[in-house]
């Protein structure tokens, strides 16, 4: 075995990697945009001018006001109001929060589950591997949106339900990727060395192989998160995802769709622009991470 084959995928310290990551302006902008939206979303209860779920704070008389209008009580609706008189800025901040929570949480759960399946398949080989990969193949042969659609039609609306559906459509990507990387890593010299030291199988798997799969997992997770947010928005737009009491960005866009024909563009377009910014920045981040970490995807 040549020397080069035992060099791990990632070359360089975390600092070098961070430097390389930051050397492309678009990646820095994407990171800033994404973190900015995270801050806005998770800080929504603190910074939003109004709690859009609190009916006492919402005045139906103020419905459908264009951006910049003043409310009866003198508050300015910088981004206008929707059909129920909610302040769009506040509704969007809360919407970002929901969308991000759903995207991040479902991605995280799918990552954990998929990684476990992938590691087990790569470690056990044989019929376990064949069976698990058969299931993965079957899952991936159905379009994501179709599976999510079927699940949500059966399960109904709800935050927990959409997270479940998104985990179901995502885990297979992680399982397949992790299995691939783990198979490659498992054949490397450091694993042989660990075996030579008579380390236990579980310890080799979790302590030695798993850390070397992390860069690849990070890239897949970033891309999947963008996809999950987009899919959640699509399903919520169709009225299948989140309940109306928890309006995500997709649901806000759907609410505004009814008013689009009458020229009240802001209710739909503004949350849409935020959604785009989040999805595009996550995609750019994933692209850059892949270039920097260079996993063989």
């Amino acid at each position: 075995m040549s020397l080069t084959s035992s060099v791990p995928i990632v070359a360089g310290s975390p600092r070098d990697l961070a430097k390389r990551f930051m050397s492309v302006p678009s990646a820095v902008i994407a990171l800033a945009v994404f973190l900015g939206f995270c801050l806005l979303g998770f800080g929504a209860p603190l910074i939003a001018p109004q709690n859009p779920y609190d009916l006492r704070q919402v005045d139906i008389l103020d419905s459908l006001l264009p951006p910049g209008s003043q409310s009866f009580t003198g508050m300015t609706y910088w981004l206008g109001t929707d059909g129920q008189g909610r302040d769009m800025l506040s509704a969007m901040l809360y919407g970002i929060r929901i969308s991000l929570i759903v995207g991040l949480l479902s991605g995280f759960l799918a990552l954990i589950f998929g990684t476990m399946v992938g590691l087990v398949a790569a470690y056990r080989r044989g019929w376990v591997d064949t069976l698990l990969m058969r299931i993965v193949d079957l899952q991936l042969s159905f379009p994501t949106i179709l599976v999510a659609l079927i699940l949500l039609v059966i399960l109904g609306r709800g935050v927990d339900k959409i997270i479940f559906a998104l985990v179901v459509v995502q885990w297979a990507y992680f399982a397949r990727t992790v299995r691939g990387v783990a198979l490659v890593e498992g054949a490397r010299e450091y694993v042989d060395a660990a075996r030579g030291l008579r380390l236990g199988g579980l310890r080799i798997l979790l302590g030695h192989i798993l850390p070397n799969c992390l860069p690849t997992m990070l890239v897949v997770a970033t891309m999947q998160m963008a996809m999950a947010i987009s899919l959640e928005a699509t399903l919520s737009f169709l009225g299948l995802g989140l309940p109306p009491t928890r309006p995500s960005l997709g649901l806000l866009i759907a609410n505004g769709f009814d008013y689009l024909q009458s020229g009240r563009y802001w209710i739909s377009v503004l949350p849409g622009l935020v959604l785009l910014a989040i999805i595009i920045s996550a995609n750019v981040l994933g692209d850059r991470l892949r270039d920097v970490l260079n996993p063989r995807l």
Binding site: S230, A233, I253, L260, V269, G272, L276
Partner: peptide, 16 residues
């Protein structure tokens, strides 16, 4: 990467 529904919506807004 853009959600299909968003593209459709913008097309309606612009062209219709």
């Amino acid at each position: 990467s853009l959600p299909v529904f968003w593209i459709g919506l913008i097309m309606i807004l612009v062209f219709s």
